[in-house]
């Protein structure tokens, strides 16, 4: 009874003194960098503990981000072609174990799934007879290089005009163009379909290339933001020296805005490389012009690889790999460009 009372007194006079348990707890907390009323933690200790916790959290998150990629690569080497079929994937945690059954078609050994993918992954079913894996890759390169290079330059031209040339109606036109991003793409999908049909774009390369040649509003918007940071005096000086706007654009703007242009180009390249929907909507599966992601879905929808998912995962790896490599090389530029977007908003 007396004990209880003393505890209550302690609680009442918490500001002056606390219970011994609380005191000990505060000491432990101070050791881990948390200041309390009785103990002050050193700033250094607080930072150290905070850093350790941050690292643990971030490493855990990074593991979650990386693991599906790791699993995808590991699974692309699993022996799914044999009698075990997809069971080889079901037992896979870190790295595939060699199957006791072995492959039915022992081609390529360890790289069997890749060999099967390259040899007959994209043939049969509703694929065009002359279609092949390398045709899909060539299509994808064509679809993601030509429109991106031309489109980024046309966007940069527009951005230059919006940022550095004074012309009447400039802001009105810019707002008019910017309002177009409010139009949801799927809403006008069917009319675009009818429109492309009338142009003869459907089911060939044109539908994936021609609309991109005109440039994109968002790309122009970001390059314009970048160009605002460039001094106008360079352009004035060039004008006094007698350079026309064409000359200024090629000679000054393109080289000076190269970081923004390359970053935007890389982002559009990745978007075009992964553009499954465009190909799926506008190109029929039996055409030779389907792109890589679309061809992968056709491959998956067939019966050949239903119980042999290894080659499909090999295709997934081959589709992701170029983009990841590109991103790894240019990550500084791309992330920097994205950060610029965030800080501008």
């Amino acid at each position: 009874m007396e004990n209880m009372q003393s505890v209550q007194v302690d609680i009442a006079e918490e500001e002056i003194k606390v219970s011994s348990f609380r005191y000990g707890l505060n000491a432990v907390l101070a050791f881990f960098g948390f200041s309390t009323k009785t103990h002050r933690a050193s700033k250094k200790r607080a930072k150290l503990v905070g850093d350790i916790v941050t690292y643990i959290v971030l490493l855990f998150g990074a593991f979650l981000m990386i693991y599906p990629f790791w699993w995808m690569i590991a699974a692309s080497f699993a022996q799914t072609g044999g009698q075990e079929g997809n069971n080889a994937l079901s037992g896979l945690d870190w790295w595939p174990t060699p199957s006791a059954f072995g492959y039915d078609d022992a081609v390529g050994g360890f790289f069997r799934n890749y060999v099967v993918l390259f040899d007959r992954g994209f043939s049969g079913g509703i694929f065009d007879p002359s279609f092949s894996y390398w045709r899909a890759v060539a299509n994808n390169l064509f679809y993601s290089i030509v429109p991106v290079v031309v489109g980024v330059i046309t966007s940069a031209m527009a951005a230059f005009s919006f940022a550095k040339i004074n012309w009447i109606g400039r802001n009105a036109v810019f707002m008019f163009l910017l309002a177009a991003i409010m139009v949801p793409g799927p809403s006008i999908m069917t009319t675009q379909y009818a429109m492309y049909q009338s142009f003869g774009f459907l089911n060939n390369w044109a539908v994936m290339v021609v609309p991109g040649l005109f440039g994109a509003i968002m790309t122009a918007f970001f390059i314009r933001q970048f160009l605002f940071g460039l001094p106008t005096s360079i352009i004035e000086a060039a004008k006094i020296d007698g350079a026309g706007y064409g000359r200024i654009f090629v000679g000054f703007i393109l080289p000076l805005a190269m970081p923004a242009i390359v970053a935007q180009g890389l982002l559009s390249f990745m978007g075009c490389w992964n553009n499954y929907m465009g190909s799926y909507i506008f190109i029929t599966g039996s055409s030779v012009w389907v792109n890589l992601p679309h061809a992968m879905t056709i491959m998956n929808s067939g019966t050949t690889f239903a119980s042999d998912q290894g080659p499909i995962l090999a295709a997934a790896v081959m589709c992701v790999l170029p983009v990841i490599i590109l991103f790894a090389i240019f990550q500084k530029m791309i992330i920097g460009s994205l950060m610029l977007t965030g800080s501008k908003e």
Binding site: P68, W71, M270, N300, I312, A316, C319, I324
Partner: peptide, 16 residues
């Protein structure tokens, strides 16, 4: 590392 999934193809990720 955290940005990697953003650049990967949706189709590849879905099949994985």
């Amino acid at each position: 590392v955290y940005y990697l999934p953003c650049v990967a193809s949706t189709v590849s990720i879905v099949y994985t």
